[in-house]
Design a protein around this nucleic acid. Structure first.
Lengths: 192, 192
DNA sequence: TATCAATTCGGACAACCGTCCAATTATATT
DNA sequence: AATATAATTGGACGGTTGTCCGAATTGATA
């Protein structure tokens, strides 16, 4: 129905505005008033749709997770072999770091924000788990890495995600991040 | 002189209190009043010694960097071979995650805080660079990893740090973090 | 002891924050 | 057309924030 899509749009406008504000200035430096202004909406609308600030931020995390999990999986599906899919994932991170660095900013920011709230922590934990799950599903590790009790495919998936994430952070801290981005290519030989 | 050491103590008390507050609740949830109370000091003392909030946080980062760079290097010096030193570093991270998880909380927190301030970003970037420098100095990568333009020893050092960092974050998000901590042992075979 | 700078103190200030609510308006249902 | 529900508005509220400043205290110097 019309009024429903209109409401969804209104609610979505708020999420989008929140996303923009947070990725530009960080969750700690953004007020609900900032988000309302950015969305072209009155302040009380935020509490109407999302109850309170934490509820709003939780929804931002959920939206972000949904969007990029789909995007990553869509990309992975294009690869024919495990090796090909690993390359796709690495290059996806590299491309994102180049053309959408604000995505990583908000990802890091929301992650550290989540450390201080049990409910948000669970959301963020699920996000990491789901991405690691994709890695495990589409990029199976065999070959050169010896098996032991420490490196099941699920463990390796998480460590690979950790490498991508931790290296990306360093890239974001770097004024000249291009070198750091390129160095992500090392993963291609590390996890093989 | 006496009054000087007293002042240093006063200033140091503030830093320590800031460290404690931030590692317990996150920089975004801590006010200067909280820190002053924790330090047993009057509010205006913070601005007297550190000018403003950012100045105080900058000093926290510097202190943290100094302390743990020394601690890490002291540990690395104990190892006799490159392989031994790599094990030491990995086990240092594992031990810290177990007995001092608040250290990682504040490390992640200050890192994401630094994304939104140019001056803090530089401090944090230096910290990462220095740790990577230690890795490069004490743990030289040769052996199984093929050389190319992408994996100089400095690049590998940063990626290894990224792996430690990114995997540690996932451990902090996990309610049962022990498995994640153990999986850091994979690094022993990954970077070899 | 008198002087002076460094430190400590208490409080003020204006600005901002998240939350809440009564009212108005829009939309759908009967 | 009348009614009920949902959405939107504007503003108020108590509380907290970072910053600043004048006065009091301390300790060293001469």
């Amino acid at each position: 129905m019309y009024y429903e899509t209109k409401n969804i749009n209104q609610a979505q406008k708020i999420i989008n505005a929140a996303f923009k504000c947070i990725s530009e200035r960080g969750y700690a430096n953004v007020s609900q008033r900032d988000i309302a202004d950015e969305a072209g909406v009155v302040l009380s609308q935020l509490n109407y749709y999302y109850k309170n600030k934490e509820g709003l931020f939780a929804e931002v995390i959920k939206t972000l997770a949904r969007h990029y999990l789909n995007e990553i999986e869509d990309n992975l599906k294009k690869g024919k072999t495990e090796k090909e899919r690993m390359f796709i994932l690495i290059e996806y991170f590299q491309e994102m770091l180049r053309i959408k660095p604000e995505l990583f900013k908000i990802l890091f920011d929301l992650t550290s924000m989540s450390l201080w709230s049990e409910s948000l922590k669970k959301l963020q934990h699920d996000l990491f788990n789901d991405i690691a799950g994709l890695i495990r599903k589409y990029i199976i590790f065999e070959s050169n890495i010896e098996k032991s009790k420490y490196n099941s495919s699920i463990t390796l998936s998480k460590v690979m995600l950790g490498t991508l994430f931790g290296t990306s952070i360093q890239a974001m801290l770097d004024e000249e991040k291009e070198d750091m981005i390129e160095s992500l290519s090392v993963l291609k030989v590390l996890f093989r």
